[in-house]
Simulated scan of single mutants.
Amino acid sequence: MKIQGCIAVLTGAGSGIGRALALALAREGCHLALVDINANNLRETAEQARHSGVNVTEHPLDVADRSAIAVLPEQVIAGHGQVDLLINNAGVALGGHFDQLSVENFDWLMAINFDAVVCMTRAFLPLLRQRPAARIVNVSSLFGLIAPAGQSAYCASKFAVRGFSNALREELAGSPVGVTVVHPGGIATSIANSARGPEGACEQERQIQLDRAAKLLRMPPAKAAEIILKGIMRDKARVIVGNDALILSWLERLMPVSYWRLLPRMPGAQR
């Protein structure tokens, strides 16, 4: 896919991988419609991206708000005239065993991590079909490939993104729209700091999980964005980001049931 001159819609653009992707796309000459719930962070990303000389529009909204998503395509067309690339990157985390999680928190996570991906795809697919070449990029996770204890909600959402993306790719075969699913490993973002936890968890338990995550979330977001962008430009169906994700993806294929016996405890995993 040729990025220069394209129009990309990118969710979760206010920080982490989203911000890094926005800046990487801008450097390639891609115009941006940036989406994030945090208006201040979104503005910072947009200002940095504009230094590359591209047209950037800001759309502060909650991707769990279906009514906001429904009117977003019209807003993007008003600012850009077309859409060539949709990147569903926004995501949140929720740690804890299934029976420790409230219904409200479980639904909160699924609404952002999976339902928003579906709603954004439904909203923008008609516009993408109008282009000679277009692409949907859905960000799953390493935890969309493997499933540690203590991450039942997060894994459910990220496995759902993976399955949805793979099926959608087959359904769109022969159309101008390709589908890429991304599985980042340990990327040094703030997702662990903003994660919700089990009901009634004490601060000490939360700090243990944060310390464990910090040891493994090491790849700079800019490096992850570079890998993802290369995958998009090469029309790859799946992009695995990081050696940790690559190794574990192969181990899961070889030992789909018993791979956990060979692994140390993952961040957020609770036995």
Rank of each mutant, 00 (worst) to 15 (best):
I87H: 06
Q82H: 10
F106L: 14
M110W: 09
A90F: 13
S141Q: 10
N113P: 04
D115N: 14
L128G: 01
L127S: 01
E104V: 13
T121W: 00
N138H: 08
H80E: 04
A116Q: 05
G81T: 01
L86V: 06
L109K: 06
I87A: 10
Q100M: 12
V83Q: 00
A93P: 06
A133I: 08
D84I: 09
H80S: 00
A134E: 03
A93S: 15
V103D: 14
V92N: 04
L94W: 00
Q130W: 00
S141V: 05
I112G: 01
I112K: 02
D107H: 11
H97E: 13
I112A: 05
A123E: 06
E74M: 09
N138D: 04
A111V: 10
G79K: 07
L142Y: 07
D99N: 15
I112V: 15
L127Q: 06
L127E: 07
G95L: 15
Q100K: 10
V118M: 09
A90Q: 12
T121E: 01
L94V: 07
G96N: 11
R135I: 11
I77C: 03
Q100E: 15
L101C: 03
N89I: 08
R122N: 12
D84Q: 04
A133N: 10
N138P: 05
L142P: 06
G96S: 08
G81E: 02
L85M: 08
L109G: 04
R129I: 03
D84N: 12
P132D: 09
H97M: 14
P126W: 02
I77S: 01
R131H: 03
V92L: 15
F124Q: 03
V92P: 06
L127G: 01
H97K: 15
C119I: 06
P126D: 05
L128Y: 00
R131M: 06
G96W: 10
F124T: 02
N113L: 11
R135A: 12
R131N: 03
I112D: 00
V117W: 02
Q130L: 07
E74D: 13
L128H: 00
A78D: 08
F106I: 11
L128P: 00
F106A: 14
V118Q: 09
R129M: 14
R129N: 08
N105H: 12
N89W: 11
Q82M: 06
D99L: 12
N105A: 14
